[in-house]
Design a binder for these strands. Sequence first.
DNA 1: TAAAATAATACTGTATACATATCTGGGCAG
DNA 2: CTGCCCAGATATGTATACAGTATTATTTTA
Lengths: 229, 229
Amino acid sequence: MSGHLQPIKLDSYKPLRELVCENIRQAIIDGTFSPGERLMEIQLADEMGVSRTPVREAIRKLELEGFVVMIPRRGTYVADISIKDITEIYEVRTCLDVLAAGLAAERITDEELDTMNGYLHEIGQHVANMDMNKIVEVDTAFHDVLYNASRNERLRSIINNLREQLTGIRGRSMSYPGRLVETMDEHRNLVDAIASRDVERAQHAARVHIENAEHTLLRSIAEPKKKAK
Amino acid sequence: MSGHLQPIKLDSYKPLRELVCENIRQAIIDGTFSPGERLMEIQLADEMGVSRTPVREAIRKLELEGFVVMIPRRGTYVADISIKDITEIYEVRTCLDVLAAGLAAERITDEELDTMNGYLHEIGQHVANMDMNKIVEVDTAFHDVLYNASRNERLRSIINNLREQLTGIRGRSMSYPGRLVETMDEHRNLVDAIASRDVERAQHAARVHIENAEHTLLRSIAEPKKKAK
DNA sequence: TAAAATAATACTGTATACATATCTGGGCAG
DNA sequence: CTGCCCAGATATGTATACAGTATTATTTTA
């Protein structure tokens, strides 16, 4: 979206470090900073018009979240996502998504089910228009409802963190030929299983969905479709 | 162990924030700081003989790890672990431990198996002597080998984080009547299953082990065994 | 000319100083 | 006597200054 760092807005009264953190994270996700690129505190601070202190605290948080790698006394670098990383993340996410789907099938409310069905319909329209941004946005909201229905805060936060680590490259998977239609079918199956409170089927649907997403992502990466900065 | 914060040692050349972080985490785990207690930056900095900067960065990390809760402009408080939290954590951990056991059964080396068997034997001796500290120590090492054998860094780090959040109260479970013998049997089953590369059986053994640990912990908490500060 | 050593530069790590918001206590009014 | 308001104190949020180390470039020597 943005090709450059935003100067910090003072709109909210959230601590500066939070705004700075979100700003840098977004810049990493949307490709403003390339993997392996060095992040220097002074430079970041200057560009955003703040001092080094909030920048440092933001970087510490991003390190915990896995977006950057810090080498003591050497500096901070944008984390490089390798095939091995993708495999690792999906190994964990498959397991957790299956858990979340099972729990949601037991604990979801009818209102939440309505919301999910609404999102499903919305996604269908955006797919018809090929509006990628909207698709990703609503897809995220759709899964948020699901994870929330698991009634497990930690599960939700761990999954969200793992998802965010892949956000930068997830778009590739989406634009893979035929994947969108597949995804919609899988979503439909998942919602139906949860709606009928069928834990086993919900777990199976979640597993199929996440495994397909992984395979598509890995396949799309194997293909030569690099876009330079 | 310690009843008070340690002044910071300059032994290692690790960044101060790391040492401070470990120091505070340990103090929370061993009960020097009670749940709900307020942590003040200046006081912590003075006690450890450092400035506020590394203390602040350490606290940010502890917040991400779930050990403390920060309220903007209000201060930092030691996280309070509720029954709901324990249930949440074990819900996720069960899933992840099962995953780790299955992966380990596929990927573990013979050397690592030897190591695990060695720890198992060691635990047996410490149980005979009722040396709780040693038991916890070797038990931790035992599981570390297992998680490491999953060959998934993220899985390992997530599980370790969840474990640490319960470390403070895990001792209760250990001292529950008969639990130690049960635990040893479960460990034996787990190692045997992994040694025979039987994924299904390893997963089952892991699930049984973690679920029993949870039940024992919840039971021991339900009983009135509070020790005041 | 190449390699090694030394010096200079630049960034991270840490400490301290300043600004601002929240909490506490006392006084005054109802 | 109780409740509200204002003022002072204290702690957090942010900025800046200082120190130490790593990297790089330049110079000297082989």
